[in-house]
Design a protein around this nucleic acid. Structure first.
Lengths: 299, 299
DNA sequence: CAATCAAAATACTTAAAAGGTATTAAGTTG
DNA sequence: CAACTTAATACCTTTTAAGTATTTTGATTG
C-alpha cells in the first residue's frame, strides 16, 4: 500500500475514467491502469467494473473511497499538527509553580501565554524549588517558577519580575498608621518568616538584609507559606516581610506598609527556570511570552 | 509523503536508534537515515535530536508519531473493510418489499440474512411491483420482493417460496364450519380482491383460476392491500382468497379455510427480483441466504 | 452485421527513487 | 587521546514507476 496508489485511486473513482484521471494526475494512462490493477490485487478486491464507457466503482470500491479520503485528511492533519508543534504552537507544557506564586505575576503570565498560544495545553504542578529542579531534570516539567535561585550548571533561569519588599502588620500595631517604615525599626519586632525549607529561601534573604543593617531579627515563628504568615499577622503574632505581590492577599485586620532605608538592593526576583540545553519549541514560545510580559511591565 | 516513510519513522521513533530500526526494517542504515531526513525536510520540522546515543524524539516528533500510528490503523481498517465489502459482508443493501409481504416469509428471510451478515445494513423500502422495477433500474434498490412476475430482459428473479391459496371467510358464513371448501363453490360468492393496480396482479390470477374452473367471479369489492381485504371479510363484505402466509394476520371474526379442487396449479410464488447483470457481492450474499432459506423450507 | 469508436490493457523502453556497500564525521568514554 | 558508537555522506545497484507505441475489447452505428 502506498499513498500514491490511494491518490490515484481517488482520482479514478471520481472521474470514473482512467484517461481523464491520468490527465488530472499529470501522468499518462498506462501507468495509472497498472497502479489501479496493483491496488486491486493487493486488496484482493475488484474496486471497479470496467465498462466501455469507463470505470464504474464497485460497492467495495465505494467503501475504499471513503476510507481513502479519510486517510488523506488524516495525513494532512498530521502534517499540519506536526508543523504547529514544531513551531511551539501546539502541544502540552508542564509548568511548576510554588504555593504563594499563584498570587499575582504567574497567573498574568499564564494568561498571556494562553491568549498567544491557545492550542498549547498548560498543566500546572505545585512544587517547591528542590522538587522543581528534580522534575526539570527528569523532564516531568519544562518550566518552573521560583525565587532566590542559586545558579546550577544545567538549569537556566530568566527573571520574570522583581518586587520590593513590604511589611505586613496588624491594624492594631502602631506601624499600620505610618506611611512607611524604616527597615532599621524592625530590630525589636517579632518576625514571622517563611518558608522554612528549600535553601536558599526567603528567610535567608531577610536574615541577610538584617545582618547588612547591623541587627539580628527576632523571629517569632517560622512557617511554610505566605498565606499562613499573613494569617498569623492577622492574629497578632508579629510582623512579616513579603514581596509586594502579596498585597493580592487581603485579610481583615492586616495592612501592607512600604519599607524604607533598606540596607542593600532589596528587591526580590521571581524567575522561571528551565533546562539549559532545552530546545523545545514550546519552551521557546513560553519564554517569548515571559519576555513580552517583562517588556510590558517595564512600561 | 509516503507510507513507507511513516513506517520507517515509527520504527526509528520507537527504537530511538537508526541502526537498530534499520535492522528491524530489514534495510541497511544509510537509506533509513536518508528517508528520515527527507521526511523532516518535507515537514519542515525536526523530528529528532541527534545524540551520540541515538535519536531522541522532539515534541513535534512525538506529535507526528501519534498521528502516524493513527494513519496506519486507518490504512489497516480501510483494507479490512474493503475486503469485507468485497466479500459481501459489509455495506448497505436496499431491499424493496410490498405491503402484505411483511406478514411471514420476508421477515424470516431478512432475519436469517441479518444473522448471517450482521455488518450489512438492510434498508427496507415499501413499494409496489412497478416501483420496484423502476427503482432496480435506477439502482435505488438492489433486491425487491414480489409475486406474479412477468419476465423482463434486464430483471432476474428467484422464487423464494410458493404458497397455497386459502379462503378467508367471516365466522358467520357457513363455509367457516367446513374443513375445506371446493373452489367451484365460490361461483356465487361475493369476492373481495386486491390489489387493483400493478398488472399482472393477484386479481388477474384469481380471475384466471375462475375462468379455468368455468365461472366468472362475483366481485364485491376491489381493494389495495391484504389487511383491508381481511378487514372487509371481518365486516361481512364477502369472502377473499389469499396466500396461506396471510394466516399470520389474525382478526376477530375471520377464519381461514383450505381450498380444494383447484382448476390448475394454484400455488402463488413469492420471488425476489434483481438486476440481471448485477455482480454486487451484497446481492450475492443475499441470494445465498434466500437459497439457504428455500432449502430449509423444503425439509 | 461488419465498421467504427472509445475505452482499458499490454509490451517495451526510459527515468526516478529506493536500497546496498564502503567510508567518513562527530561526539562520548575509558 | 585512542577506541568506540552513532549518524551522515559518497557512490553504485536494483527496483519501481512513468512514458510511448500498440493491441484488445466491447458497445454503437451506418
Amino acid at each position: 500500500m502506498d499513498l500514491r496508489k490511494l491518490r490515484y485511486f481517488i482520482a479514478v473513482a471520481e472521474e470514473e475514467h482512467i484517461g481523464r484521471a491520468a490527465m488530472l494526475l499529470n501522468i499518462s494512462q498506462p501507468p495509472l491502469t497498472r497502479q489501479i490493477h496493483q491496488l486491486e490485487e493487493e486488496l484482493g478486491v475488484a474496486l471497479f467494473n470496467r465498462t466501455p464507457k469507463g470505470m464504474e466503482i464497485t460497492e467495495a470500491g465505494a467503501m475504499f473511497l471513503d476510507e481513502a479520503k479519510n486517510i488523506f485528511a488524516l495525513v494532512e492533519q498530521a502534517t499540519e499538527r506536526t508543523q504547529r508543534a514544531g513551531a511551539g504552537r501546539l502541544g502540552r507544557l508542564d509548568v511548576a509553580i510554588f504555593g504563594s506564586g499563584i498570587l499575582e505575576t504567574i497567573p498574568k503570565v499564564l494568561l498571556a501565554f494562553r491568549q498567544r498560544f491557545p492550542d498549547v495545553k498548560v498543566v500546572l504542578h505545585t512544587m517547591d524549588k528542590a522538587a522543581q529542579i528534580e522534575a526539570l531534570r527528569q523532564r516531568r516539567i519544562t518550566v518552573g517558577f521560583n525565587r532566590l535561585l542559586s545558579p546550577l550548571p544545567d538549569i537556566a533561569s530568566e527573571v520574570v519580575t522583581s518586587e520590593n519588599l513590604l511589611l505586613v502588620v496588624n491594624d492594631s500595631h502602631p506601624f499600620s498608621k505610618q506611611q512607611c517604615v524604616d527597615f532599621n525599626d524592625l530590630k525589636a519586632q517579632p518576625l514571622i518568616l517563611f518558608p522554612n525549607q528549600g535553601r536558599p529561601n526567603f528567610i535567608d534573604r531577610v536574615n541577610k538584609l538584617c545582618q547588612e543593617a547591623g541587627f539580628t531579627p527576632t523571629v517569632s515563628q517560622e512557617v511554610n507559606d505566605a498565606v499562613t504568615a499573613v494569617a498569623l499577622v492577622a492574629s497578632g503574632f508579629g510582623v512579616c516581610i513579603l514581596p509586594e505581590s502579596a498585597t493580592a492577599l487581603q485579610l481583615p485586620g492586616v495592612s501592607y506598609v512600604p519599607l524604607t532605608n533598606m540596607p542593600m538592593d532589596s528587591k526580590v526576583d521571581l524567575s522561571c527556570i528551565y533546562r539549559d540545553n532545552d530546545k523545545s519549541p514550546l519552551l521557546k514560545s513560553f519564554l517569548t511570552v515571559v519576555r513580552e510580559f517583562k517588556k510590558a511591565q517595564a512600561e
